[in-house]
Amino acid sequence: MKEPCVYILASQPYGTLYIGVTSNLLGRLLQHRTDALPGFASRYGVHRLVRYEMCDTMEQAILREKQLKRWHRQWKINLIEADNPHWIDLSVTLGLPALALDSPRHGC
């Protein structure tokens, strides 16, 4: 079943942002996490899902992606922080394990 979606990944809070579109969010997140897709996201370590929006059609998702890509960086940050002020990795809420960088650290 296809579920059109536009999503925003970040390398870390306030880090590098990547905006993409897919009809299979979990599958695409796994591709990003394993760097199976060569390109911008893998080159800059952009793996943390910080926002996603489900759409009715792929056409709507593509239009929203294009719109968000035209936005100023601060507008994108404001959009993320409206629903995710701590920049948590939302892929955990979708059933994926936490990224290694989000795991509790030991020591000082």
Rank of each mutant, 00 (worst) to 15 (best):
L63K: 10
S23K: 13
T57L: 08
A61C: 02
T16M: 13
A98L: 15
A82V: 03
G95N: 01
V6F: 11
E65I: 01
R51K: 11
A98K: 15
I8M: 14
L99T: 10
M54N: 11
L30R: 15
N78V: 03
I8Y: 06
T93D: 14
C108H: 14
Q31S: 13
M58S: 08
W75N: 12
E53K: 15
R43F: 05
T16C: 11
A10D: 09
R70S: 12
H106T: 11
S23I: 01
V6I: 11
N84L: 03
G27P: 02
W75P: 02
V6D: 09
P85I: 05
R105K: 15
L29T: 00
R48M: 13
R105I: 13
P97A: 07
R28S: 06
T57G: 08
A61H: 04
N84P: 05
K69A: 11
T16E: 12
R48C: 07
R28Q: 10
P85M: 07
Q67E: 14
P85T: 06
V50E: 02
L30N: 15
N84D: 05
V50R: 08
V6M: 13
D102I: 11
D89I: 07
E65V: 09
M1H: 08
L29S: 03
G39T: 02
R73H: 08
R33K: 08
P85N: 06
D102F: 06
D89M: 12
L63F: 08
H32P: 13
A61N: 00
C108V: 12
L63H: 10
I8N: 06
L63G: 03
A41Y: 00
L49W: 08
P38Y: 06
Q67H: 12
T57E: 05
D89S: 10
D89P: 09
R43D: 06
G39F: 00
L17E: 05
L30W: 07
W87E: 04
L101T: 15
I8D: 02
G95Q: 04
L79E: 09
E53T: 15
V46Q: 05
E81C: 06
S103F: 03
G27W: 01
H86T: 13
A41M: 09
L68V: 09
L29A: 05
G107I: 04
T93R: 15
L9P: 09
L37E: 12
Y14I: 04
E65R: 12
M58I: 04
G15Q: 14
L29W: 03
N24W: 06
L49G: 07
T34K: 14
D56W: 07
L79T: 09
L25T: 05
N84T: 06
Q12N: 13
G107E: 00
C5F: 01
P97Y: 06
W71Q: 14
D56T: 11
L79M: 11
E65T: 10
N84K: 10
T16P: 00
H47E: 10
R64F: 09
I62E: 10
K66C: 10
V6T: 15
L26I: 15
H72W: 08
